[in-house]
Amino acid sequence: MDSEDTTIDTGVPDAGAHPVSRRSTLGGGAALALLPLAGTEAASAAAPAPLAAAPPDPGQRLLLSTKVNRRDVRVEIDARTSLLDLLRERLGLTGAKKGCDHGQCGACTVHLDGRRVASCLTLAAKTNGREVLTIEGLADGDRLHPMQQAFIDHDALQCGYCTPGQIMAAVALVKEGNATSPARIREYMSGNICRCGAYVGIVAAIEDAAAAMRSGGAA
């Protein structure tokens, strides 16, 4: 495996020398974080232990080793960091949205070890040694996931802000076996709020995609 091609290393010491703004992050996408591995960090294949528990000001830094969209990520974080902020502000993955930042709206939904979670209420530290899947990792190259295609086909959005969270929740819902009726789909999508009110299209898209996922065996 070629670690230079598959590893995102945000190289914290560099971050101070070359500040990364949200704008440059957006512009560069995830590619900006592709830096050569620092030798010492690359060697730590085992689950890293927290750094020495010094006095907690100004915030303990943790060396985090996780996997995002099938790529290894090694990054030093402040212990307070949410998974959502790690994705958006450090890794340039801005698909997951910050709606409420309190687990109430679902716009930040991603998969953690295959299960859907609210990334805003997930401490990034909890993803150590685990696998995160975001909307950016859902398509198979240029081929959209059936759920993405179904959302387009059914006009299951207006402004689109909640859509990445809706789609990640919907994919998980189908895999859980909960796409058995429109009523059950509505109940199991209740954690994803759409302020445009595209719910009718969303339910139709999920019914459609569920059939495609079952027949196509889509992940």
């Binding site: 979670v117 609210a118 209420l121 199991y188 209740s190 954690g191």
Partner: peptide
């Protein structure tokens, strides 16, 4: 009690 996202967490 919650959304499935929160129940998973």
């Amino acid at each position: 009690a919650a959304s499935q996202q929160l129940r998973n967490m």
